[in-house]
Simulated assay, not measured.
Amino acid sequence: MTATARRNSETPSTADDRRYAIRINVQIEADLVDQGRRHFSVVLTNLSITGCRFECSQPLRVPGSITLMIEGIEPIPATLVWMENGLIGAHFDEALRPTICNRIIRTLRDRADRK
């Protein structure tokens, strides 16, 4: 078995290469408020303690500051870091506590069990 290591001079080429936290695939409806105080409905498609990816039909400014609002969770300030084909990546201004991520996932499971 051969292991390869990235040289220090190399820079990551994709978002996947730059990730430091495990992402969990989700389907979460949320609200987003941008810098202009416009409100949008979005669907989060993955989540980690450091950021998320979501679907949004409206164009947003990248980079740009937003506030993400998920039912039952305190508002989450974040910065938009990329946008492509209706998918947008955001990095949370402060990492979420693992207990917050667990609460979000638990809430999703409870909703699915009720259906």
Rank of each mutant, 00 (worst) to 15 (best):
A3D: 13
A3V: 14
A3Y: 14
A3T: 14
A3H: 13
A5H: 14
R7N: 11
N8Q: 12
S9G: 05
S9R: 12
E10Y: 07
E10Q: 13
P12Y: 00
P12E: 00
T14A: 05
A15I: 04
A15P: 04
D16Q: 11
D17V: 00
R18S: 00
R18G: 00
Y20R: 14
Y20V: 11
Y20P: 00
Y20D: 09
I22E: 15
I24S: 14
N25W: 06
V26G: 10
V26K: 11
V26P: 07
V26Y: 11
Q27F: 11
I28Y: 08
I28L: 13
I28H: 08
E29K: 15
E29A: 15
E29Q: 15
D31R: 15
L32P: 10
L32T: 05
L32H: 08
V33Q: 12
V33S: 08
D34T: 06
Q35T: 14
G36H: 14
R37G: 01
R38I: 03
H39E: 11
H39Q: 10
F40V: 04
F40A: 02
S41A: 14
V42L: 12
V43E: 15
V43P: 05
L44I: 14
L44A: 09
T45M: 12
T45P: 02
T45A: 09
N46W: 04
N46S: 06
L47I: 10
S48Y: 02
T50N: 04
G51K: 01
C52Q: 00
R53L: 12
F54N: 07
E55P: 01
E55S: 13
E55A: 08
S57Q: 09
S57W: 03
P59T: 04
P59W: 01
P59Q: 05
R61N: 05
V62F: 01
P63T: 04
G64L: 01
G64N: 02
I66G: 01
L68T: 03
L68E: 02
M69K: 14
I70T: 05
G72L: 06
G72H: 02
G72E: 01
E74P: 04
E74V: 11
I76N: 03
I76R: 06
P77E: 05
P77C: 05
T79I: 13
T79V: 12
L80N: 07
L80V: 07
V81H: 05
V81F: 03
W82G: 10
E84L: 14
E84A: 12
G86D: 09
I88W: 10
I88Q: 09
G89F: 09
G89C: 07
G89H: 09
G89Q: 10
G89L: 08
A90N: 06
D93R: 13
E94T: 14
A95K: 09
A95Q: 10
A95R: 11
A95G: 04
